[in-house]
Amino acid sequence: MKRLTGLILLTAFVLLVSACGITKDIQEVVEDRYQLEDVVESSVDSGDISKIYTAEGKDIPAVSSYLQEQIKPNEVSELKDGKQVLVYDDFIVSLTEGDSDSDTLVEVATVGFVRDNYQPSFFDGLLAYYILDEILDVDDWGKKQKSRCKNSLGNCYGGYKSTGGTYKGPSGTPSFRGSGSRGGGPGTGK
């Protein structure tokens, strides 16, 4: 009886330890699996980055399936024009065709990097702007960012294949960044 009780306690302990184990985020999953190619820093906040990896010999559907099996994303776009986007809590993963048809570029960007740097047209046909507004926590992000990109001579990030390591970003902090308050006053129904 003592042996059975000890075995049950040991099994319960092992299950508890494995359940409390450190959970990986999607950045770590990608980092463990694919080769890092480059890191692009935000033009607004150096803490916001986009890391670019190469999945050699893997097409977009294979990479997308693998990532979704590892951690379920909050949103998944359709595969369109050689691009697909997976949205996680803290990261937005863009999958694009690599230099060869059998390779995929896996770009893992912080939400802040996407909010402050991406050209809204990158997401055309992939994610609706109202979804991006929610993810990026900015009302009418697409319109505001499009205007910001236009006013900075179109110098917004268009994804690694189009902008690459030469990205320097638009000058100035976006007007929608840094204001955590919702506005209004007493009785405005917040």
Rank of each mutant, 00 (worst) to 15 (best):
S121T: 11
L132D: 05
V85P: 07
P61V: 08
N117P: 05
Y118C: 10
V76L: 11
R115S: 06
S64G: 11
Q145R: 10
I60K: 10
V114H: 05
E75L: 14
N74M: 13
D116N: 10
L95H: 06
C156D: 01
D116A: 04
W141I: 07
R115E: 05
T104V: 06
S65M: 11
R115H: 04
Y157G: 02
V63T: 11
D133Y: 05
K144N: 09
E78G: 05
D139I: 12
S65N: 14
L86M: 11
T96L: 10
A109S: 14
I92Q: 11
D124R: 10
G154V: 08
T163M: 03
K150T: 14
G164R: 09
R115L: 03
L86T: 07
V76K: 15
E78R: 09
V106F: 03
G112P: 02
S152P: 00
G165E: 12
K161G: 09
V93F: 05
S65Q: 14
D99F: 13
K146I: 00
D137Q: 14
T96H: 08
E75C: 00
S102V: 14
S77E: 09
A62E: 15
I92N: 07
S162L: 15
K150Y: 12
S65K: 14
G142Q: 12
N74E: 15
G142C: 04
D133L: 07
D133P: 04
Y167K: 03
R148N: 08
S94D: 00
Y129T: 13
D124P: 02
S100L: 12
D103M: 04
Y129E: 15
D81M: 09
K80I: 10
S100C: 02
Y157P: 02
S152M: 03
G142D: 09
Q84E: 15
D81Q: 10
P61K: 09
V114C: 03
G82A: 12
D90N: 14
N74Y: 08
V93W: 01
Y66T: 11
S77C: 06
I92C: 08
V93G: 01
A109K: 02
F91H: 14
L67F: 04
K150L: 13
D101I: 09
Y88V: 01
I135V: 15
V111D: 07
N155Q: 12
A62G: 10
T163P: 03
E107V: 06
I92L: 15
K83F: 10
S147V: 13
Q145C: 09
N151T: 09
Q70D: 06
R115P: 02
E97R: 15
D124Q: 12
D81R: 09
L127V: 07
A62P: 00
Q119A: 13
L136W: 06
Y129D: 15
K72W: 01
V76R: 14
C156R: 06
E97H: 08
S100V: 11
Y66V: 07
Q68A: 10
D133N: 13
V106T: 02
